[in-house]
């Protein structure tokens, strides 16, 4: 009798194809980005808000990289967003108004902070991570508040003058250049993130999220992987913050506030965790809702955010996300990536 059991048709070629298919762009994805590009030309009066959506979307994608793919919960992701914003703002004021250079510097600064603080979230259960990330954001906020000679303190960082983009495109008051700029940056970084999550590296992150004990037993250097993705995610958040500073030409302490971290969590949760598009879809829904609700009751918009969160959780966020991802998977040609189980509930050790 042969050692090889009878089976089959399954060849290396087929397996390779099936694997690669997951990394390929689906029709839905292409349409999604075409639609986004179309807004540049068809919705000129909405460019200011679309710019904000793109920035929040990028911020949420950055959170998805650690929460959705590596399972790190964070209540302080605004730390990186805020640092990126301040660095971009200060850099423009003190050094040069060239947007791309400033954005790169903002990303690097946030990445450094991410790298340094990543070691704090390696150990510990969810609660410890929540507290530590929250603490880091609070410390950052406190520093920005105290160092008012540099950051403008409670008055905010004013007088940021941006040079033209690529030396050619001036930022206009309708936000068209700003939106185009943010959208292109978002797209490029999204493509990179997409590569990351479909790579062996991304797969190893998912394995750590699902079962870090087993991941170690397969020889995966768990800590190094977590440090890496946390740093990358911080860089993304920093670039999102940098975009905000550059396109609004103003930075206030608000960029480091607790509600920033909470909002981005909400954005991601609305759109669904763990398939990258969740952050973008969530950003659109969030901003549109905010627009509608705050025109009804300007000051009490927070109430509706709260209500949405409560209802979303009670209705079974995971299940809704599963469904959203299923639909997205259909739409985006099965590229949506990781099916996700509920994050393992960590008992008290």
């Amino acid at each position: 009798m042969q050692d090889k059991p009878f089976m089959s048709s399954l060849t290396t070629d087929e397996v390779a194809t099936s694997l690669r298919r997951k990394g390929r762009w689906g029709l839905g994805e292409v349409l999604f980005w075409l639609a986004a590009a179309a807004t540049l030309f068809f919705l000129p009066e909405r460019h200011l808000i679309l710019n904000e959506i793109a920035i929040i979307g990028l911020f949420a994608v950055s959170l998805d990289l650690i929460l959705g793919y590596a399972g790190i919960v964070s209540l302080g992701h605004a730390a990186f967003f805020g640092v990126g914003a301040y660095v971009a703002g200060i850099f423009a004021k003190e050094m040069t108004g060239d947007p791309l250079t400033g954005l790169a510097v903002a990303g690097v600064a946030a990445a450094l902070l991410g790298f340094a603080t990543s070691f704090l979230v390696l150990r510990g259960a969810d609660l410890t991570r929540l507290m530590v990330t929250l603490g880091v954001a609070l410390v950052a906020g406190e520093i920005a508040n105290q160092a008012s000679w540099l950051t403008g303190g409670a008055d905010g960082l004013q007088g940021i003058m941006m040079g033209p983009l690529l030396g050619m495109f001036e930022f206009d008051i309708f936000g068209t250049t700003a939106y185009a700029y943010s959208l292109v940056v978002l797209f490029v970084l999204f493509v990179v993130a997409r590569r990351i999550v479909h790579s062996p590296f991304g797969l190893s992150l998912r394995s750590i999220r699902d079962n870090s004990l087993r991941a170690r037993a397969v020889g995966i250097p768990v800590n190094r992987r977590l440090v890496a993705i946390y740093t990358i995610s911080a860089a993304y958040a920093g670039i999102a913050g940098g975009l905000l500073a550059q396109t609004t030409q103003f930075v206030s302490l608000d960029v480091l506030a607790f509600h920033r971290s909470a909002d981005v969590l909400l954005v991601l949760v609305i759109g669904g965790v763990g398939y990258l598009y969740g952050g973008l879809i969530g950003a659109v829904i969030f901003k549109v809702l905010q627009d509608i609700l705050s025109s009804m009751t300007p000051q009490y918009w927070q109430f509706w955010i709260g209500l949405i969160l409560v209802v979303l959780v009670l209705a079974g966020r995971e299940r809704l996300t599963e469904r959203a991802r299923f639909l997205a998977g259909r739409l985006f040609g099965r590229s949506a990536g990781a099916p996700r189980t509920a994050p393992a509930r960590e008992g008290r050790p």
Binding site: V15, G23, H198, P200, G202, S204, R206, V218, I220
Partner: peptide, 28 residues
């Protein structure tokens, strides 16, 4: 949540030192 294909691929990539590879699509 992973398939056996992904699970085994994970272990093999890791051993071959391409677990750090974040640019190439898994399976290429």
């Amino acid at each position: 949540a992973m398939t056996p294909l992904e699970t085994l691929g994970l272990a093999v990539s890791e051993r071959k030192g391409s677990g750090r590879d974040w640019w190439r699509v898994f399976g290429s």
